[in-house]
Nucleic acid binder design. Structure first.
Lengths: 240, 240
DNA sequence: ATTTGTGAAGGGTTTCACAGCG
DNA sequence: CGCTGTGAAACCCTTCACAAAT
């Protein structure tokens, strides 16, 4: 439907919410491809991805018209188109800073390599760990951070340090040109607007779950005063 | 120091987006309290939490009117109110299934205990790990999952297994009454509507960052013509 | 007959800007 | 005067429902 008769004009106007779901579709599609499926309908793909089919179609429509009416989507072709939309046709170099348990888990995670993310280096502040090898990767000392980032043209920094060092590490990453940061430390990082930060925060997720647990619990005990978070405890206690 | 004389009548209509931010405010407020700050304005708190002050005020307004005009918020009181809204005044029991590197990291994470989340058990499928201790917690075998969940009245299950076992573990958790699941395995879990699932997915986060990296790159370098997706190249070439 | 792609409607979230209160 | 709390406007996202395509 572009006004121009020529190319589809896919200017990057993909909504954030859609971008966040594309990796899920990609994963499901990859699994389908491996199981030998060549074609999938929006209903089928949506079910496997855990979203509604209308939403899925809307999402895909932002990339272009890659389905066939009456048939569905070609799995392999969709994989390619989503990969391209996400920028996965290029590859990205990553450093992981902080090689504790979490850092180890990340270094061993296969999902890095399988989507064009290459771990350039593991970095830790503890001299005793320097020289160790995790998953075939050498651990370097924090002093070398700047050198390593520039040498390998790192574009994504993963912070898996304790909260106390996270901001400093982040500052150093940003100072030597890293423009995307994935933060596992439980702290709000401050960065210039030009830098993207995403956070993964166990504690926050648990607290969100707690909120919903609470709602279920208060709703569940049925008969009288339903779902009042405040003084329900009094009522509940009295009822016991 | 309740402001109003009567009960504020907080109907549980807190928007999801707000719920997701409350834990961040809580963390910042806790840090402020520890540093001796007793009062904070919406501007100050918003800056520390990395959001706009209007958004912060809207968020807090959903809990009630706990600020003082012309002054700001009492740090300690706000901590309490947010904790209560999130349901953190009760405490929750958690099992962690899968004690690999990630499971170890989770078991060692201090953030569990500090907000009323108690780890009831670590569970692994590998008999060789059973009997080991991590952070003072015994590792039990997967066979005991149902027993442990019921015995400790577990309400939140954390899945840190490989993707291949995640759905099965999830089914078993749900079957014995767990109603909230935090999933670290790179797979879409299917559960009944009554169960809440939140996922933490490294690979997805990286891909979202990749998308934005790509956008920055294509915008930034004009002439060099490196790594430009598709027909943008035509435009770039024409512009040169 | 089946399934996509999409206007239009509906809901939710953010931002604005200011009234209201301390 | 300063800062909160909030209607109203703007924006974004989801859902609906159907025309268009094969």
């Amino acid at each position: 439907m572009p006004a121009t008769s020529a190319a589809p004009r896919r200017r990057s106007g993909i909504p954030e919410a859609t971008v966040a779901r594309l990796p899920v579709y990609l994963r499901v599609l990859t699994a389908l491809a491996e199981s030998g499926t060549t074609t999938v309908s929006s209903d089928g793909l949506a079910a496997a991805a855990g979203v509604g089919s209308a939403k899925l179609r809307k999402d895909l429509s932002h990339l272009g018209s890659y389905g066939t009416r009456g048939v569905g989507y070609d799995v392999e072709y969709l994989v390619y188109q989503i990969s391209r939309a996400l920028g996965l046709t290029q590859h990205y170099t990553v450093v992981i800073v902080g090689v504790g348990n979490l850092g180890h888990a990340l270094a061993n995670y296969a999902g890095f390599a399988t989507r064009g993310f290459q771990i350039a280096a593991l970095i830790d502040a503890d001299h005793r760990r320097v020289g160790e090898t995790v998953n075939g990767l050498d651990i370097h000392h924090l002093d070398e951070l700047e050198t390593l980032v520039k040498e390998h043209e790192v574009s994504i920094g993963v912070i898996a340090t304790p909260a106390t060092s996270a901001q400093e590490v982040c500052d150093r990453l940003v100072a030597c040109g890293v423009t995307s940061v994935l933060n596992f430390a439980p702290i709000v990082l401050s960065v210039p607007d030009s830098v993207d930060v995403r956070k993964v925060d166990l504690s926050i997720e648990l607290q969100i779950l707690a909120f919903h647990e609470q709602r279920k619990a208060t709703g569940a005990l049925g008969a009288a005063g339903v779902a009042v978070p405040d003084e329900v405890r009094t009522v509940a206690a009295a009822a016991t």
